[in-house]
Design a protein around this nucleic acid. Structure first.
Length: 589
DNA sequence: GCCGTTTTCGGCCCGACTGTTTTCAGTCG
């Protein structure tokens, strides 16, 4: 029986779409498969019963044909149309899509004309001039392909949110003060706080007369390794870190529409444009316009909009914060509600640090140093969670050391109280979740902690069903108050465990156990894509920096961004509570 | 391939840039 989980099915449909594009079939077919994949990926419940009961066409976006494909897959373990495509299109061509400048059409043309299918062959044929001879290609195309392959091998395609933030900030700071810059904003996936970033987009409002000087500053920036392209309104560079940075300049009047446009997401924009069409308007990066008789944009008749919020308003929506622009429920919500109704957190709403390590295990600073750093940053409490005894590699605490640590925490708390400091350290532990789902200490020790975070650190590649059992057992344990980084993924490095997060969320919500948002930019786990499910189940979370040093405490900001992206309202975030309220919640098992 | 208070056929978001052309296709976001 093939695996029928949502992710696997969505992956297969996506793969089919990729092969369709490479095979040159009608692009709308491929789009239909992509849409279906996205829909299934976003479902809050398992798709399996819909397959076994043959009710797939109940889902909007899945018609007879795709339904039949998936019924066949459930029976045979293969999608017939995908298998056929694979006979036509060599698998190794898929990797070519990562080469910038090469799309499905050119890839197929080169493959057919020269009978090659590997990247190495492509490099050869570019170098010996064969590619340049093909119609529609030329010497520049071949050169660009070679260059792009070189970049691809040298640099990774995406980077973490913290890396992108740092690079973007550099350009932003320098460009902000250039003469003629009227407005400037980061756009793209970085503005949406995606967990990994491909290109960095910066948008500027300026008069036409000033654009040349602004581009000059941009292209001459010390971080620039190579200029990739430059036009009247747009320029692209590659930085020494291998990141592509695009700067676009528009007129000040166009800035709001352009900002919306370049913030995306693509999926969000598609719906926005459709909404405009429904009102006989058209939306592009220059603004919202009426249409002429032929249904084309009438640039002479704009709808006046002075901000992104105005554009949303014209299209029947309240302002949608950038983090939520993913076409994952924001349209239904903001048609009826205002931003305040979402009750999303700001960094300033976070009152305490939960999940941090000290020198007692693998942290860099003592408990006192961590506590004082928290105080200096304006927090009211620290939930200290060193590693448990099984995590010997990280200096996990034996029972004896646990007891000693408690003494130290008690002493520090008394000292703070005696000095009139309104600050408290909670005794916590990041307990390894053992392979059978039990925690790492006997009950009498577990009872001595204020709270326990149960985390996965070893035996990550268990079968999904076994892993779910392991989690369920840990969630049912009355001492577990928070589940740590639920998939244990490391972004761009290691996939997390394949556990069914929808089921985990249901169980955690039912047992009043929180699942953390691990705010380390390496993790950002639980994934924001499960936000709607979490909201529906009333799941609690905590924004946890998992700090191993003082700087790590500031990762809280990334966690707040992900919490917003995942629709977590303040009342479902433990560390928006006061210390007293939190104590009560910990005790209410 | 999917969808339908304009439609069961004919649409499906839109513009900039590039490189190849000499009016446009392909790619990108």
């Amino acid at each position: 029986m093939p695996s029928l989980d949502n992710k696997t099915i969505a992956g297969l449909l996506e793969e089919t779409a990729v092969y369709m594009r490479l095979a040159g079939v009608n692009d709308f077919k491929a789009i239909a498969f992509d849409r279906a994949a996205r829909t299934i990926e976003t479902l809050e419940n398992s798709i399996e019963p819909l397959i076994t009961e043959k009710k797939l066409t109940d889902i909007k976006g899945i018609g007879k044909s795709i339904a039949q494909d998936l019924y066949a897959y459930a029976e045979t373990g293969a999608i017939p149309v995908l298998e056929e495509l694979k006979e036509q299109v060599p698998e190794s061509l898929v990797a070519w899509l990562n080469i910038s400048g090469l799309g499905p059409k050119k890839i197929y043309k080169i493959h057919k004309a020269l009978g090659i299918s590997t990247i190495e062959e492509l490099q050869e044929k570019c170098a010996d001039g064969s590619v340049a001879k093909l119609s529609g290609m030329g010497a520049k195309s071949a050169e660009k392909i070679l260059k792009s392959i070189e970049w691809m091998q040298q640099f990774s395609e995406r980077c973490r949110l913290d890396e992108a933030t740092e690079i973007a900030q550099r350009f932003y700071d320098d460009l902000k003060s250039v003469k003629g810059v009227q407005e400037i904003s980061i756009a793209g996936s970085l503005r949406r706080s995606a967990e990994t970033i491909g290109d960095i987009d910066i948008l500027i409002a300026a008069e036409k007369a000033d654009t040349a000087a602004i581009f000059e500053t941009f292209l001459a920036h010390e971080s620039v390794l190579e200029v990739l392209g430059q036009g009247d309104t747009k320029a692209s560079v590659r930085t020494k870190e291998g990141r592509q940075v695009d700067v676009r300049i528009v007129g000040q009047k166009e800035f709001p529409a352009a900002l919306m446009y370049f913030t995306g997401s693509k999926e969000h924009n598609v719906v926005m444009r459709q909404r405009a069409r429904d009102q006989k308007l058209t939306l592009n990066e220059y603004g919202l316009f009426h249409m002429d008789g032929a249904g084309n944009t009438d640039f002479e008749r704009p709808v006046e909009t002075g901000s992104e919020a105005d554009i949303y308003k014209e299209l029947g929506l309240s302002f949608v914060p950038p983090e939520l622009r993913e076409d994952r429920g924001e349209f239904a919500f903001f048609e009826k509600h205002k931003l305040d109704d979402a009750n999303l957190p700001e960094v300033s709403d976070i009152r305490g640090v939960l999940h941090a390590h000290s020198t007692w295990s693998d942290g860099k600073y003592s408990i006192r140093e961590m506590a004082e750093a928290c105080m200096a940053k304006g927090f009211e409490y620290l939930g200290l969670t060193d590693h448990s005894r099984t995590a010997a590699y990280a200096g996990g605490l034996t029972i004896e050391r646990v007891k000693k640590q408690w003494e130290e925490i008690d002493a520090l708390n008394s000292e703070f109280a005696n000095n009139g400091k309104n600050f408290r350290i909670f005794k916590g532990i990041e307990s390894d979740m053992l392979p059978d789902g039990s925690l790492d200490y006997p009950d009498d020790i577990l009872a001595g902690f204020d709270f326990v975070i149960a985390s996965l650190h070893a035996s990550l590649d268990m079968a999904p069903e076994k892993m779910l059992e392991r989690y369920l057992r840990a969630i049912e344990n009355p001492y577990t108050r928070i589940v740590g980084h639920p998939t244990a993924r490391l972004l761009l490095k290691r996939d997390g465990s394949k556990v069914d997060l929808n089921k985990m969320i249901e169980a955690a919500a039912a047992h009043n156990t929180a699942i953390e948002i691990n705010a380390s930019p390496w993790r950002l786990d639980i994934d924001w894509r499960y936000g709607q499910k979490a909201k529906k189940e009333g799941l609690m979370t905590a924004i946890c920096p998992d700090a191993h040093d003082i700087e790590g405490i500031d990762d809280t900001a990334y966690g707040v961004a992900i919490a917003r992206k995942g629709w977590f309202s303040k009342d479902r975030i433990l560390n928006t509570m006061s210390a007293a309220e939190l104590q009560q919640w910990f005790d209410n098992r």
